[in-house]
Design a protein around this nucleic acid. Structure first.
Length: 292
DNA sequence: GACCAGGCGCACC
DNA sequence: GGTGCGCATGGT
């Protein structure tokens, strides 16, 4: 597969790559504005190279598959990429929407910055559990060790291990990677639920946000923050604003020049005006504390 | 050494 | 139904 598609601008792919680069597992070529992406197509691992060859205002993407696929599978590749990179979201409209709010300057600064999802649902959930409470550097170090020890490398790209593989791990194997006892249990036990078909991540695509949260927080090791991050980075939902998140709290503190971190009540009250696109608020607030 | 990081469960009241 | 604590480790 080797094809090109145009996308509605503005779409700042470089900005997206900068964010993706935070994860050491991603294979990014800034000079060529390209990234290799691990996809699962019909249960087979497929490596895709995505390159931006247009401009921010008129983006064009070249999609090349490394792995051989059937002609009929090309549509699925495109479908997954569109969902991950949110090519269908008119960022100009989002920008105009927020320009009239108290976040105008933030959205001015990040105009055209797209929201990019994780590459698959299971990996997204595991990564989020692993990242709970840790500083970013160590969090990504842990998820990297997890994938490099138990996942699979194909054409230079890392795939997360399958739920079946992780469900068979012993807690000690993750303790060796410096997981806490609890975190190791959460990762393995949640994977068991998925491997045993007691938890269907894919079927959550058709559920409302609150229904997904309800199902996920019933699982030991998954709290509201993790469920909200899964909705955002896994399912690609547009209106998530995790008020427990330290990064969001610090982003608001910085943007509004507060002396202390905002309270839950302040955050909920302020965020009313940012519906129904609070995922972009969250994303840009994170961006604002990372890239200085 | 204390305290905090893109939390969570559990033990207490 | 709230509050306090431990967890692994690295940075400040």
């Amino acid at each position: 597969m080797d094809r090109q598609i145009s996308v509605k601008g503005p779409y700042n792919f470089f900005q997206a790559l900068k964010r993706l680069k935070i994860d050491p597992l991603n294979d990014i070529d800034f000079e060529k504005q390209a990234i290799k992406i691990p996809l699962i197509i019909n249960e087979k691992p497929v490596v895709v190279r995505l390159q931006q060859i247009g401009t921010v205002e008129a983006p064009i993407f070249r999609i090349v598959t490394f792995t051989n696929i059937e002609k009929a599978e090309e549509a699925e590749v495109f479908c997954q990429l569109e969902r991950i990179f949110h090519w269908d979201v008119p960022l100009e409209d989002v920008y105009h929407y927020f320009k009239e709010t108290d976040l105008g300057a933030l959205f001015e600064r990040y105009r055209g910055t797209p929201f990019v999802c994780d590459f698959n649902l299971y990996g997204s959930l595991m990564k989020t559990i692993i990242h709970q409470q840790l500083n970013m550097a160590f969090a990504y170090e842990l998820s990297k060790r997890f994938v490099m020890n138990f996942g699979q490398e194909i054409d230079g790209v890392w795939f997360y291990p399958s739920p079946e593989t992780v469900s068979k791990l012993k807690v000690e194997e993750l303790r060796e990677l410096q997981f806490s006892q609890r975190k190791a249990e959460y990762v393995i036990d949640t994977s068991k639920l998925i491997a045993n078909n007691q938890l269907h991540l894919d079927s959550m695509r058709t559920l409302e946000d609150e229904e997904v949260i309800e199902k996920l927080v019933a699982i030991r090791g998954i709290g509201r923050w993790t469920a909200e991050c899964f909705l955002m980075f896994g399912l690609g939902r547009m209106d998530l604003f995790p008020i427990q998140d330290i990064g969001i709290q610090n982003g608001l503190k910085k943007y509004f020049q507060l002396n202390i971190k905002p309270t839950k009540e302040d955050m909920l009250q302020k965020s009313e005006a940012w519906k129904p696109y609070r995922t972009y608020t969250s994303l840009y607030l994170w961006e604002s504390i990372e890239t200085d």
